[in-house]
Design a protein around this nucleic acid. Sequence first.
DNA 1: ATGTATCGCGCC
DNA 2: AAAGGGCGCGATACAT
Length: 621
Amino acid sequence: MRLVFLDLETADADRLYFFEREDIRLAGYAVDDGPVVTTTDIESLVALLSEPDVIAVGHNILSFDLPALARCYGLDLDAMVARDRVIDTLLVARQVDPPLSSNADGRVDGRDLGRYGLDALSKRVLGEGKVSGDGGSVLEAMAAEYGGYDKIPVDHPDYVRYLVQDVELVRALSEVLVVDRYVMREHRVLHWLNRISEHGFRVDVDLARRWIAEQTVRVEARKRDLHERYGLPLEGKAPQRSTAGIKALERAFADCGVEPPRTAKGNLATGKGVLAELIDAHLDNTALIELCRTLLALNGERSVPQTILDHTGPDGRVHPSVDARQATGRISLTRPGLTVMGKRDRANICERALLLPDEGHRLLCVDLSTIDGRAVGMHCQDPDYIAMFAPGKDLHDEMAAAVFGEDGWDRALGEHHPRRGEAKAVSHATNYGMGAAGLSVYAGIGEDEAKQQLATLAAKFPRLAAWKDWIREQARSQVLTTIHGRRVRIQPGKEYTQGPAFMGQGIARDLMMQGVLALPEWLLPCLRAVVHDELVFSIPADRIDEGREAVLDALQFPEGVALPNNIPVPILAEAGDVGRDWADCYRSEKRGWPEVARAHRETTTCDDPGCTWHRTETTNK
DNA sequence: ATGTATCGCGCC
DNA sequence: AAAGGGCGCGATACAT
């Protein structure tokens, strides 16, 4: 086999999915220990990479350079990945030296260039001496000087020099970074997920524009109201959050006869929990209630439609980036962040109506049932815990029976346990290492009761409890390895909470990816989003039933999955409704909210006073 | 002008 | 001794 180390210089990387041939400007590559060649003859590089004994090695090439060559020059990237002929040093580096969680000290949220960018990585792994200056910032400066990445002269000595250096760095890194089986699997996973970015998700642009216009009217009315009553300034997008605005609000609360609510750090608290409590505590104070409601409404306005529009390309679609850079390995879809669009709140779930199937298609969502719990079950091997995941059983009902007893619950009737909701809170809490104090607040119960519930749970599932302790002990080595072989880093001092949580999330993530890898070829271009335990597909309308079968078949293991000699844990999935937009997929799940159904949204009138769709058109409240 | 820190909204 | 995990994104204040 021959190793080909490579890097490309291109036009603005954000435009990858709209690149034309000329946007790939300069290629640099080296074969094994040969000299670095730079060339504008991109075809020659593609021809080289297409030879069957060549392995392509480069930094972020799986998500950028190679897709660019595939798009513009027909490189058969599918075949290369399928034959393990791609090594992306970014993926290898994350496995060798996994990241801390983004909230950890010293990390800037979201971006990991500071640690895994080619320059930073080389400095850390190879030592300072190998890197002469920062290639990225030099490039940026040249782009600024010439008016764009696509305008830098391809024979500019600095341009060529940094391309050569990057190829050399990749070659040096590849000699140090150890490739394991997991990271080769990870290449296949991310290659398939990159289809999400490539194809994009169709946007209802007209709807987004209409919402933004309506939103502007609402927001202006509320600001004006607070301005006239309490002197709120009108400058900026969110004057209620500016210094002068906060001053005005503090006076407003005083005018209403209450002490302004405070956060732990002493700032004015305007969170929705705080304001809701204030309303409850002063039900006869109409001025205060009006103030709180106006503030709630102002703070509750979300910028989702605008963010979607900001990222919508000339093809009317968003092309979110797909990354696996979270500490647990969970997948993020960003720019726009599809993972944070409304779902649980009635007021927000219709945000998902902004995303549409392709023409002639329908959307299909499939989610893995209580997958984090099953992941923990696989690892902890507590037989009683695993028994709750048997097909036909509902985890939270079973948990309620285990913690609170069977009283008042008739299994045979097929109804839920009366205390199912409480049980859900307890198991959720204990998964993440919540203490009695935290649980009492979270579940709205007394601290003694919370303590009792946690103790009961520990007693009912002793092996699960012992597993958590063991994982916490293991976590002191700072890096845990999941069943599938992913290495996850625990922040020193957070072993107690992060240890079990990361194990559960990391394993769950790979159970989902196991399903993605098992999808039939024809469904791969149909994948539109992955939201941790849910996959979203846009499927030709006449193939929906076939698609549903195939997805369930890929994701589910009713007979269970297990390591050798372990108790198997069933993995089950559930399909949502066939939708004409993303919200429409949840109309059965959210039966009480008629506006979730597109058919309801298409009617002109509605007699549900709580309907968030028709309400906004008739009133300004 | 640009980046960081903080908060606040949301999701799993 | 006690301990709710992971994220994205927008807005403001502030430092550079």
